[in-house]
Amino acid sequence: MPDLTLDGRPLRVADGTSVAAALALGGDGCSRTSVSGQRRAPLCGMGICQECRVRIDGRQRLACQTLCRDGMQVETRA
C-alpha cells in the first residue's frame, strides 16, 4: 500500500494503482492546466494523448503509465 503526496496532501492507495487513478482517488481527477487555462484529466489511458502529464518527484511524467510508489510527490499544478 504505497503512501504518496498529491498536491501536498497525503494519500494511500492499493498496490498497482496508477498515478492517473491516484488523481481521482485523492483529488478531482485533473492532471494539468491547458495553455488556455482549462483543467484537464487523463483521456486516452494509454500513453498517447499526454493530457495526464503531471510532475512526479520533480519530473514531467505520464500519470497513466506510472505506478504509485511509496514516498512519491505528485503535483498537478506545477
Partner: peptide
C-alpha cells in the same frame, strides 16, 4: 483509439472508450 473532437470533449470526465477501461484497470 481514434478520438474525434465534439463540443465539450475536453471536459474532465470525458475519456476514450478503451481509455476508460484502461484507467479503471489502473484503479480509477
Amino acid at each position: 483509439e481514434l478520438l474525434l473532437p465534439f463540443p465539450g470533449w475536453t471536459l474532465p470526465g470525458v475519456t476514450g472508450a478503451g481509455g476508460l477501461q484502461a484507467l479503471i484497470k489502473g484503479g480509477i
